[in-house]
């Protein structure tokens, strides 16, 4: 007779991960909703603080008429796309920067004895809806930009807008995961990770033309951040691509995002494996 044990009929790993993510996130949402007024205040606070980035851009435009040849609505378009996409990935995976601290204090071990993928557990840890503030302000700026940019809309260009948000969130998300894998190896690297994620978001709020060519090359080919908004947005606005990329490049974001996510997955596995063979 074979006894059935819980855990024998497990779902595929990714579904098990999504399930665990949902359970943990729901727990944190319930707990933050216990103090509704405080929740509203933190959302509004988050909205205002993250909105300061756009205020910086507005201040610049009070002195100049264009940035690298881009008008205010065009820069707002870049900003709105990047901020919203980053906001989504920050909402979903923004807690990953505590990973190094959890390894140092040993509480990372407790994640490994639970029957759920570690990535889902660490991603959902302290899930904070206040991060909706960033998405909201990004969305508002994007809305303003869409009303004011001068574009001959085609079906392709219309489709590119939601695609940029989805692929952008995926690319930023992959960056969070790569950063987390790196934190396992170098345990106090949270700031390095933040430089790439939060720094990447700030970078993408400005037109590529204001940066040096080698820098843009790095952001396009090493970290594929240029595919979050620069390349597709250039297409939408009828501007030349940065770096003279081929014509179809604007539509390559899904492929780039997919490849980067796969790479991030491998990096994460390698990181976890190195932890489990060396300990802390």
């Amino acid at each position: 007779m074979t006894l059935r044990h819980p855990g024998d009929g497990e779902l595929p790993r990714w579904r098990e991960g999504l399930r665990a993510y949902g359970l943990i996130a729901a727990m944190w949402i319930r707990s933050s909703m216990a103090y509704r007024a405080s929740f509203v205040i933190t959302v509004v606070g988050n909205l205002l603080v993250t909105g300061l980035d756009f205020v910086t851009i507005l201040l610049m435009f009070s002195q100049v008429h264009s940035l690298g040849g881009w008008s205010l609505p065009e820069v707002a378009f870049l900003y709105g796309l990047s901020a919203t996409a980053f906001g989504i990935s920050d909402l979903v995976l923004g807690s990953m920067d505590v990973l190094g601290a959890r390894i140092r204090d040993g509480s990372f071990d407790t994640l490994l004895v639970r029957p759920a993928p570690v990535l889902a557990q660490i991603g959902a840890d302290r899930f904070a809806l206040r991060r909706l503030g960033r998405i909201t302000q990004g969305g508002l700026v994007l809305g303003y930009a869409l009303l004011h940019i001068d574009v001959n809309w085609t079906v392709g260009k219309l489709l590119l807008v939601p695609m940029m948000l989805i692929c952008g969130a995926a690319i930023f998300g992959a960056l969070f995961v790569v950063g987390a894998a790196f934190q396992i190896l170098a345990q106090d690297a949270a700031e390095v990770q933040n430089a790439f994620t939060y720094g990447g978001n700030t970078l993408l709020s400005y037109p590529p033309a204001v940066f040096g060519k080698d820098f843009v090359r790095g952001v396009t080919f090493m970290l594929p951040l240029a595919f979050v908004n620069w390349v597709p947005a250039s297409y939408v606005l009828g501007r030349p691509y940065p770096l003279d990329l081929p014509a179809g490049a604007a539509f390559a974001s899904p492929l780039v995002a997919l490849a980067f996510c796969a790479l991030a997955g491998l990096a994460w596995r390698a990181g976890l494996k190195s932890y489990r063979s060396t300990g802390s």
Partner: peptide, 16 residues
């Protein structure tokens, strides 16, 4: 993860 369903772990120095 399959084993996790069948074991319980208590670390004295840190909490789960």
């Amino acid at each position: 993860t399959r084993l996790a369903h069948r074991i319980g772990v208590v670390f004295g120095q840190r909490t789960t």
